[in-house]
């Protein structure tokens, strides 16, 4: 759906702007983030090792080779996901927040334990949605959980700030009525739009090569992620890549309209 791709790009984007950033993989048992960040061969200790006191944070954190203000805390592939305890996660997040500007938590799919742990301590949430009804419905569910089960909700503090990020957006298919439009999704979910990432082969290629898409600065998807990060930091940027490429005069002539 694009959560891990998005976590990789947003954390890379934040780090590239000079903010000291760490991205944590909460998908215990599956472990995708380190593949997308191309550091899977450098994993020695993981998130669960740190929670269980078998390693220190400094031993487990992996420094990114491309952006030196970026660190990755990989998930464990061999442990049970129940190994993530609320106290353990809290301790790590508190420790990280002493030295890092931004902590990006990459949530697994669904509304199970791992996802609940990933969102519990959140101040802001980027909800990644595809333009289809079932995905939007799931996002609505997660938004409900964010506003009722997060620490901010339980403590009665200001609610978690919500952002909508629409991925795999294909304007041509929207025009044909095969996909929900940005407007439809915004209207249903009723939260502010952070960005729209166009569907693109680049995204697939980049994750296969272990390269966060945002570093593909020439591509639509890379630029769209860069815009999203800028907006996350409070910059105003116009939304792009939301309409289909205008057909040239000749191609329209030859296709008969």
């Amino acid at each position: 759906m694009g959560k891990t791709t998005t976590s990789a790009s947003i954390s890379t984007g934040l780090a590239k702007r000079g903010h000291k950033t760490v991205v944590i993989d909460f998908d215990v048992g599956l472990r995708n983030l380190d593949l997308i960040m191309n550091c899977e061969r450098r994993v020695v200790y993981d998130f669960v090792n740190v929670i269980q006191g078998e390693a220190s944070l400094n031993q487990a954190l992996i420094r990114d080779k491309r952006v030196d203000t970026l660190y990755i805390l990989p998930a464990s592939q061999t442990r049970e996901k129940e190994a993530l305890t609320r106290e353990g996660v809290e301790k790590i997040i508190n420790e990280l927040s002493e030295t890092f500007d931004y902590i990006v938590c990459d949530s697994p799919a669904g509304i199970e334990h791992g996802a609940l742990m990933a969102l519990y301590y959140a101040d802001e949430a980027v909800v990644v949605t595809n333009p289809e009804v079932s995905s939007v419905r799931d996002s609505d569910r997660i938004l409900g959980i964010l506003q009722s089960k997060s620490r901010r909700a339980e403590m009665g503090q200001d609610p978690v700030k919500e952002h909508l990020l629409l991925t795999r957006y294909n304007p041509a298919r929207v025009e044909k009525g095969e996909m929900l439009s940005v407007g439809d999704v915004e209207e249903i979910l009723a939260i502010p739009l952070l960005g729209v990432i166009p569907e693109s082969q680049i995204v697939l290629n980049a994750s296969n090569q272990g390269l966060p898409v945002i570093l593909e600065g020439e591509s639509d998807a890379g630029q769209a992620y860069d815009d999203a990060v800028a907006r996350l930091l409070g910059e105003e940027r116009e939304h792009r890549f939301m309409s289909a490429q205008k057909k040239g005069f000749f191609s329209r002539m030859f296709k008969g309209g």
Partner: peptide, 8 residues
Amino acid sequence: SQPVRSGQ
């Protein structure tokens, strides 16, 4: 005053 979301 908040949206009532799926599952709530």
